[in-house]
Simulated assay, not measured.
Amino acid sequence: MGIPVVLIAKNQENINRFSAIKGIIPIYTYDDLKNNRINFNPKSLNIEDLKQYMLQNLKLSILKKMGEKIDEN
């Protein structure tokens, strides 16, 4: 949606909850917050291509669940 995001996980172990977005935005911890290692002015990301892939994946998943044959490649 073009909204800059700063994500702060509770701790290093908690970061695994956000594995789906780990390569898209930085994930910080409270330790990073305490030690001033957070960029509070992130740039908006252009994820239009990613959104289109996700929508296509959703559409194909629904069609498959409905019994239609799809090319899974």
Rank of each mutant, 00 (worst) to 15 (best):
E72M: 04
N14F: 11
L33W: 03
K65G: 11
I25Y: 00
K43S: 15
Q12Y: 12
D71P: 00
G67S: 03
Q56G: 08
K34D: 14
G67Q: 01
E68P: 01
F40W: 11
G2Q: 14
G2I: 10
I62P: 07
N57W: 06
A9E: 02
Y53P: 09
I24D: 04
P4T: 04
L60V: 10
L50F: 00
Q12E: 15
T29L: 07
N46M: 06
G2V: 07
N16S: 15
Q56P: 05
K64R: 09
Q12V: 12
I24V: 14
K43C: 10
E13H: 09
I3Y: 05
K64A: 07
I25P: 00
I8Q: 01
D32K: 06
I38M: 02
L33A: 13
S19N: 13
L58E: 15
K69Q: 10
N14S: 15
K51V: 09
I27P: 00
V5H: 03
K65W: 12
E68L: 10
L33K: 03
K22P: 09
E68K: 01
N39W: 02
N14A: 13
Y53F: 14
E48Q: 06
I15C: 10
A20R: 15
K69A: 12
N39T: 00
D32Y: 05
F40Y: 13
N36T: 10
L55K: 11
L7N: 04
F18L: 09
A20Y: 01
K22Q: 12
L7E: 01
I47R: 00
I3A: 06
D32R: 08
I38T: 01
K59W: 04
